[in-house]
Nucleic acid binder design. Structure first.
Lengths: 254, 254
DNA sequence: GAGTGGTCTAGACCACCCG
DNA sequence: GGGTGGTCTAGACCACTCG
């Protein structure tokens, strides 16, 4: 006989086998909801495991397993002796999680930004489709060049749902130190969780060549990224052009 | 007081804090050794958790945590109700683990192979360096074209340590159905665990253009892959050229 | 029904961090 | 010294698979 009290509040259809959902996954979903709702902000300390266990009327081992998965998905960060923290793109360690372009020589470092355009436009059909908007909905359009050691290397365009990013301006972007995703989460409450990237090789057209200071026709990497926030909701579309003269796109296969 | 018997055979320096190593990681290392030694072959059923717990004189929970990590690293595969299996590149599900080139339209499927060259040569300096060999050591060199629906799409060159791949011939390669990594693990006892890939954009030279049926100068993806087996030992170098006219390199960022 | 991995609990102890 | 996450154990029960 299991001496566990077993929490009746959670999933009354728990037993009986069809569509069984483990307790720890339900806890995980609840914690995720709190994260999404901003109950604990990025960078902040979360309640301890014992506190959460008490709150959800569940054993510590169960919330531990829930948090384990959240940590594996980079939503949360555990530090022994200190506690569990809400992950943040403002942290140093997160900066290269989505930026995979590495210098052929030397250590990775941060690029300098130059914003070419920041404006609100109506979403083109393709953008609307990928961001799950209606064609013609407002989107924020950003175009920028990123340079390493004064060498322009990345030319990228971004499209963001206008609804979520009201008031995003070139000034805000230019002022902000650190990765854009840091600004997005602190100023606009939108946190990027994961992304998919499709990469192709293309030739630099005249305008692009000018921005990246390469000869027209130079082969470039073209990346098309769709980023998702909680609930697998697409909230960013990027079109990136990388010069791979002194850099490469690094991928770890496992 | 902990009623656990605690196994004295494992890490007598366990307590005392400096260089502490959790029991489950020691168990994980032992299981990995057995995998490497071929005690259980790819695709085979491993001993159950209770058996392993008895063998290592440790609780089931501890071997479970060890196996959990092995499963997360794709070394092992758990199937509820059946048991734990040694992962294999011959399995269908493993085929696209290292091949990230996807068709723009339609479902991913398997390429047809055509081998252009298979020979033993002396390792060039660069190859020797990346494979941790001495310059001039014997290596197997392979050159092949992979096609999707009759369309040549990938031109690649491989270098493998001659010592590990004695007797690898064009015939063996051509006969074998399924991914090369399957052949490597079943015929040569070398299993690829993980790899790092550096990607750049380049122009097709005349010879490459001919092989891939594209115009000379067409932009292509260039991938340089180093694959590792147990113990982080480099055992394969690949130089891949991808045509991205109807395909793209897919990457999931998280 | 027997065996396997998967879940859940409870309790003890350990390593780590900070005041 | 007290709090936090991390390890380890033991035991019960559940979901799944197969004969």
């Amino acid at each position: 006989m299991n001496s566990a009290p077993s929490n009746p509040a959670l999933d009354p259809v728990s037993s009986g086998s069809p569509s069984f959902r483990p307790l720890y996954q339900q806890i995980k979903a609840l914690i995720t909801q709190s994260l999404q709702a901003g109950e604990w902000k990025p960078g902040e300390l979360m309640p301890s495991e014992v506190e959460l266990a008490a709150r959800f009327k569940v054993s510590q081992g169960t919330v531990r397993k829930a948090i384990d998965e959240l940590a594996a998905e980079n939503l949360v960060l555990r530090r022994q002796g200190k506690g569990t923290f809400v992950a943040s793109h403002a942290e140093e360690r997160a900066h290269f999680r989505f930026l995979r372009l590495m210098p052929d020589e030397g250590l990775p470092h941060h690029p300098e930004n130059r914003f070419l355009e920041v404006k609100r436009i109506r979403a083109p059909a393709e953008v609307a489709r990928l961001l799950d908007l209606k064609s013609g909905d407002a989107v924020v359009y950003i175009k920028r060049v990123q340079s390493f050691d004064g060498q322009p290397t990345i030319l990228e365009e971004l499209w963001l749902p206008g609804q979520l990013f009201k008031g995003l301006s070139a000034e805000r972007l230019q002022e902000y130190k650190g990765p854009m995703y840091g600004l997005f989460e602190t100023e606009f409450g939108t946190r990027m969780i994961r992304a998919t990237e499709k990469i192709r090789a293309v030739s630099a057209d005249a305008a692009t060549a000018e921005h990246l200071k390469v000869a027209p026709g130079t082969p470039l990497l073209l990346g098309e990224r769709v980023s998702f926030t909680y609930g697998d909701k697409a909230v960013e579309l990027r079109r990136e052009l990388y010069s791979t003269v002194k850099h490469h796109y690094l991928n770890e296969l496992s």
